[in-house]
Design a protein around this nucleic acid. Sequence first.
DNA 1: ATAGGATATGCTCAATCGGAGCATAATGTG
DNA 2: CACATTATGCTCCGATTGAGCATATCCTAT
Lengths: 337, 337
Amino acid sequence: MIRTATNFGQIDAPDHGAGEQTVLIGLSAAILSVQEERPRVLVVRHNDEADALPFGNFDPLSHRTLESGLRNWVQEQTSVQLGYVEQLYTFGDRGRHLARPGEGPRVVSVGYLALTRTPLERAGVLWRDWYMFFPWEDWREGAPAMIASQVLPSLRHFADAAPNPDSRAIRNDRIRLCFGGGTSGWDEEKVLERYELLYEAGLVVEAQRDRGAVPPGAPIGPLGLSMSFDHRRILATAMGRLRGKIKYRPVVFELMAGEFTLLELQRTVEALSGVRLHKQNFRRLVEAQGLVERTGRMSHKTGGRPAEQFRFRREVLRERPAPGVRYGFGRAIRPQT
Amino acid sequence: MIRTATNFGQIDAPDHGAGEQTVLIGLSAAILSVQEERPRVLVVRHNDEADALPFGNFDPLSHRTLESGLRNWVQEQTSVQLGYVEQLYTFGDRGRHLARPGEGPRVVSVGYLALTRTPLERAGVLWRDWYMFFPWEDWREGAPAMIASQVLPSLRHFADAAPNPDSRAIRNDRIRLCFGGGTSGWDEEKVLERYELLYEAGLVVEAQRDRGAVPPGAPIGPLGLSMSFDHRRILATAMGRLRGKIKYRPVVFELMAGEFTLLELQRTVEALSGVRLHKQNFRRLVEAQGLVERTGRMSHKTGGRPAEQFRFRREVLRERPAPGVRYGFGRAIRPQT
DNA sequence: ATAGGATATGCTCAATCGGAGCATAATGTG
DNA sequence: CACATTATGCTCCGATTGAGCATATCCTAT
């Protein structure tokens, strides 16, 4: 007997392998960029529909790898040539990949993060400030007021509505862990956890859409702009991953021009992480790590003393195992000096 | 016109969405455990075939999420109830999910990491020391001799065979980054990078199998025991992820009994990470972080002075944002005192 | 019972790192 | 030419980390 890949491994299991119903593999990319201290995500617009990330289905005939399939789709839809690309997560939950309630086949959705400097504009394609989708994630000017005024009250209501005291305690713990308060501060990397909490609490438009409670075409909830399918979830994953990765891989430089001042670099990191950093320490850290080198040229666009321009030192990749902009170590946030 | 999930998002792209050829979604789990200072992985055995991870195909009809599908399969094949489960990565490369050369349909493979303490044994199922598959990853007794005697010579040969000087320099950089030497030391988290390098260099049996160069049933290469499909790659991903995660999430405790001595905990971390740690500092770190609490009971199995037994402090999950066994910070390895 | 072996556990010391802020330098502007 | 503004250098301190010494408490052999 020749076993095929389909049944090998099924030792004494009943045969319900697959194939009874087609599964589509959706590829979506959160393509990120930073312009003028604002982090942007590339979305495709479609009439009155909510924004969506560029996406398409994986085609086993023409795509050699998932990533090459993704690159094809993005290229076709947006004309963007992707540089840095990283796989994020594969979502397969029933009923969370819907454009509108109860519609469409089962889709397993593979999310990607991509970084680019190209600020291209093209019909049907748009760069959006990602904090439009996640207004509670931007702490650069201090804690967003809407957290205290909207998010927390709604979440407390959600906790109070728990079926029993145990579940209620768990919900309260999650709320505290996600949004801080008490001993724990703000962890800027927990973007996905926060979004999922809001989804489960039903505070986000997609949650109602997936339950069939809301007609399509009403993408603007009180808690930020929503997206089609599970795309806001993918974007949340991308943001969290990027915020983490910055610290131990030199990925920020994928978003910078060839030359930049240290303050420009800092502003970019701040835009991504959503927190303010201490200028002198940032500079000390970045220089000490050998991440950059001086070009000798000066920038006079500063308004004060001209700033020296730097470029990324590619050699660090070969020198140190985990080079990244370690902007302090995940403690509380501090105001800028 | 009602757009479906299949064509929405295809703005002006030719219609090659999907469905022309079936894609199977394979779910595989690297189920890890530690017994007697040895890290183990659960494999399913099948006659003369190479070892495989427990796996099965995702069934969109009966599985609500990918993870629930995985749990079903594992339950059926191994009777293990999984505790901690984490998705690793989704692989879709053409030709890397083969049991033997050139066989079977296209499979997109979703790999999972799972942790368990249950040391179950059952027919057709076996716990293996994971260093059998990755002999170069165990640095607890110092650098494995086979790196200098086998791995590096073969890799240098691979670098020398590069088509041009540029490619050769890149290969040499990769070798140095993966296996250390020069300024860079050993980074225990780069398990996947090392495996992929060996795969690309053709030094690992799977590489030859995927090229159709080797008949099935020859799973033992000079560089460790091989596995079916892309399962060794998934295991590599699991090891690397776990080695990283230990440091900022209290996942080790998923592998410990309810009570343990600090040395037992240390030995477990060492088994997973493959490096030796400084005993007094390990103790200081773990206690200072509030990860454990004393039970008051003593263990007399030590051979010397009895050791106090500890248990995991669950409250730490609610207190600190990223609790983990931060066993020093990814610098060089140090011998034990 | 006692010495010696073995492990547990407490503590010190120096080096480094990270957070905060003072001080000075070099521009443009009214 | 004073001043606003940004850049950049440097200090100081407390916390963390790496390394190892010292002591405590058990078991075993004699």
